[in-house]
């Protein structure tokens, strides 16, 4: 596979001199440790809360979309599954939380968990079906799964509101204390807390032996088969986990905006999250934290001026990223440093 464009920081060739066992152990242990710069996104998020109090609704959507992109990174960057249907899980989570809130269960935490569980279930079932194939067929099948869900949601308008969207969600205060206010304060902090927990979880997975074996599968499937790794099962597990996290992201947006619509399931949503992720950088766990805010803030600014041109420039940016800056912004900065 020609993936040389996707330089991965932790995949550099080992130093020439063989490591003494103790050194190797230290090197592995170091990799798990938190580094100072990993605190930056969180510091920035808290600073934004203080500095831009009138932009918190947008901020909450950015935080939830970062989680969505992070989940896509697990599938795409770590398991190497190119999907055009990741919105299926995002939408499932959103609709689950939304439908609960419309029908009298507006408790946010359980709604969030229900959205996560439903999306993980859909991820497991669809993954069990589609992960038998690879390449184009897999791409098509992920697309068809998402489109099927889209049509199902469109048709079940008694449940989902169809083209009009799900109206009239009533989300209760968090822990019975903190109302979702119009200024978006609660929503922002809620999204931030959930994103932080999910990020810890994702980080743990990526650095675990399971995460390393996924990277192995992505880099060389045959060898992983040869050494007896249960390739399909591992891919299915990460697919399910990522689907669950995408569902969490969808439920977050549903609860903070109080609305779910068919656009939560469409191709633009699936494509859009890939774009944001790739602008930031794939397979790095932090690409989402760079690509999503950049994309969404730029979109917010530009679309107030001229939304039509916005699409042109973002398209051009993608073409340029592919041709000149494979690996996104993180990849570019790594190359500049070298």
């Amino acid at each position: 596979m020609a993936t040389e464009g996707l330089v991965r920081p932790r995949l550099k060739p080992a130093p020439r001199a063989p490591l003494a066992p103790q050194q190797a152990i230290d090197a592995f242990a170091r990799r798990h440790r938190y580094r100072w710069w990993e605190a930056l996104p969180w510091a920035a998020a808290i600073a934004a809360y203080v500095l831009f109090p009138s932009y918190l609704p947008l901020g909450a959507q950015i935080l939830a979309t970062i989680l969505f992109a992070l989940s896509a990174d697990l599938v795409l960057g770590y398991a190497g599954i190119v999907t055009l249907g990741h919105a299926a899980f995002f939408g499932t989570g959103a609709y689950t939380a939304g439908i609960l809130a419309v029908h009298g269960w507006g408790e946010p935490i359980t709604g969030l968990l229900a959205g996560t569980a439903a999306a993980a279930l859909i991820g497991f079932v669809s993954g069990w079906i589609v992960l038998r194939t690879t390449g184009l067929t897999l791409l098509m099948q992920t697309l068809v799964v998402a489109t099927l869900l889209y049509e199902a949601a469109n048709k079940a308008s008694w449940l989902t509101g169809g083209d009009d969207g799900l109206q009239g969600m009533e989300v209760w205060p968090i822990f019975g204390q903190f109302r979702f206010d119009m200024f978006g304060r609660t929503g922002y902090l809620y999204c931030l807390a959930v994103l932080f927990l999910c990020w810890l979880f994702a980080r743990h997975i990526v650095y675990s032996p399971f995460g390393r074996s996924l990277t192995g599968i992505r880099e060389n499937v045959r060898r992983m088969h040869a050494i007896g790794a249960p390739v399909r099962r591992r891919r299915l597990i990460i697919y399910t986990i990522a689907a669950g996290l995408a569902g969490t992201a969808g439920a977050l947006i549903a609860q903070t905006t109080g609305f779910v619509g068919l656009s939560f399931l469409n191709l633009e949503r699936s494509g859009g999250v890939l774009i944001m992720l790739i602008i930031g950088g794939v397979g790095r766990l932090y690409g989402a934290f760079i690509g999503v805010p950049l994309y969404m803030i730029a979109q917010n600014r530009f679309s107030e001026i001229e939304p039509v041109y916005w699409y042109f420039w973002i398209g051009l940016l993608m073409v340029l990223v592919v041709v000149f800056a494979r690996g996104g912004i993180l990849g570019l900065s790594e190359r500049l440093r070298q």
Partner: peptide, 18 residues
């Protein structure tokens, strides 16, 4: 941007609060 209630709602929110 058209029939996008999430966008419309955010825009209204910003008009009111900002």
């Amino acid at each position: 941007t058209g029939p996008n209630p999430d966008v419309a709602k955010r825009v209204a929110q910003e008009l009111i609060t900002r």
